[in-house]
């Protein structure tokens, strides 16, 4: 097979464009998520949104609209229950995300016709990307990049020193609310490429690898984007060649990069010690 053969297929090109966009936004998003110490949120929201996707199918609602509403509602419910009942947020997140996933599985089990889409949603499938998905993912990417551009300082100040950020005029509640919407829509954009079950690693692994490489935030964001984009691109290509799940392939590459950086960092520190 020629190396460029996959690029002759439109579906593959769609898949690659989506993977690169998703890799880039996940690369940036992952940095804010690990700095906030909420790596579990990608895992939780993607599982929760699975229920929203299934409900949207069932009532013939546009998947993106349905899943976005579901994702935002899940975030709000998680925060509100935690605030009002003095229960730790991680416990609430576990319950809400499992409930969302359970609703999805329940609906799936009574409507077997979902089977093909179900696998694509769980593990990612480049064959599943339609023109409408490509369009929506481009829109979501643009919205996310605009958010990260204009809210970067407010987000960082909020994460670093929330108390002072409020005094210096940042509406931290609004910033955090918009951020949770961004997480929800990025999760939705990533579902077809990465899949619900593997998304958390695709969001956090590039960011954690980048954090091992540098202490500078701007370089960290740069490295995270580069890792996210390259593993998504190579992952899509490899998944085409081996007919493997795109999500699993991308995540395995992310983990491989992380392991290599971790090993080099360990060797570098050991070498410098002696």
């Amino acid at each position: 097979m020629e190396l460029i053969q996959p690029f002759q297929y439109e579906f593959f090109l769609h898949g690659v464009i989506v993977a690169i966009l998703v890799g880039a936004i996940n690369g940036i998003l992952g940095i804010y998520i690990i700095l906030r110490g909420m790596s579990y949120i990608g895992h939780a929201l993607s599982h929760s949104i699975f229920g929203g996707v299934m409900v949207s199918y069932l009532i013939n609602l546009n998947l993106y609209i349905g899943a976005t509403i579901w994702g935002i509602a899940s975030s709000i419910i998680m925060n509100e229950i935690s605030k009002r009942n003095n229960i730790k947020l991680d416990a609430i997140i576990n319950i809400i995300s499992s409930a969302g996933f359970a609703i999805g599985v329940f609906l799936l089990s009574i409507r077997k016709s979902f089977i093909i889409n179900f696998e694509a949603l769980l593990f990612g499938n480049i064959l599943g990307i339609r023109d409408v998905d490509l369009f929506m993912i481009i829109i979501i990417s643009i919205i996310s990049f605009i958010f990260f551009f204009f809210f970067n300082k407010a987000m960082l100040f909020t994460i670093f020193d929330k108390e002072s950020a409020k005094i210096y005029g940042i509406r931290t509640d609004i910033v955090e609310f918009i951020f949770s919407i961004i997480i929800a829509i990025v999760v939705i954009a990533s579902i077809y490429v990465i899949g619900v079950t593997l998304l958390a690693a695709a969001i956090t692994a590039p960011a954690v690898s980048a954090r091992l490489l540098t202490k500078s935030l701007s370089k960290m964001i740069f490295f995270s984007i580069i890792i996210g984009v390259s593993t998504s691109f190579v992952g899509m290509y490899v998944s085409f060649i081996f007919n493997s799940s795109s999500g699993a392939t991308i995540v395995l590459l992310d983990v491989l990069i992380f392991a290599l950086i971790l090993l080099s960092s360990f060797l570098y520190k050991t070498y410098n010690k002696y």
């Binding site: 990260f148 002072s164 950020a165 005029g169």
Partner: peptide, 10 residues
Amino acid sequence: FGIWKDSIFP
């Protein structure tokens, strides 16, 4: 961060 409002750029 003490004068973060002085510019809209990231």
